[in-house]
Amino acid sequence: MTDAAADRRRRLAALARADVGLLEESLDRLDPAPRYDVLKPAETGLVMVRGRAGGTGGQFNLGEMTVTRCVIRNDSGTVGVGYVAGRDRRKAELVAVFDALLQDPAHADRLERDVICPSERRREERRTQMLSRAAATRVDFFTVVRGG
């Protein structure tokens, strides 16, 4: 994977988990507002989630999840893609808009700071909180010596 693709992948992962309110606010702050054409209007569909037998063996179809996608092209001709878990069509469109903007060096640094970093930080905080709570439920075994 090229560096550009790796960057885009990391940003899309952050955007997919971003709070939709944060995306709307960031969009409102952009001046001028980004202009774009919708290539594929936001649409909700299904992605079949695959698992593996025993976790590591042959593949099988575990069940589906709802996913919403949207594809746009902005006025500089950059295509933006949004694929997010769930049924929020507005979010999928916003992700596609930011995906296109973030490919533009003129916007990338600022949006990285205003949108990507807060989303990544929030995910990390949530994860640390969950793992800290889990760690508090770890069993400390001790052996009771009988007789002696």
Binding site: E43, T44, G45, L46, V47, M48, V49, R50, G51, R52, G55, T56, Q59, N61, L62, E64, M65, T66, V67, R69, Y83, R127, M130, L131, R133, A134, T137
Partner: peptide
């Protein structure tokens, strides 16, 4: 309900060994 939705595709196989574990 699911029969009303189009299939967008198939995920990569889940990597459950990389789960963020609660239990």
């Amino acid at each position: 309900y699911r029969t009303t939705l189009p299939r967008l595709g198939t995920s990569l196989p889940l990597e459950t060994a990389r789960m963020t574990v609660r239990r």
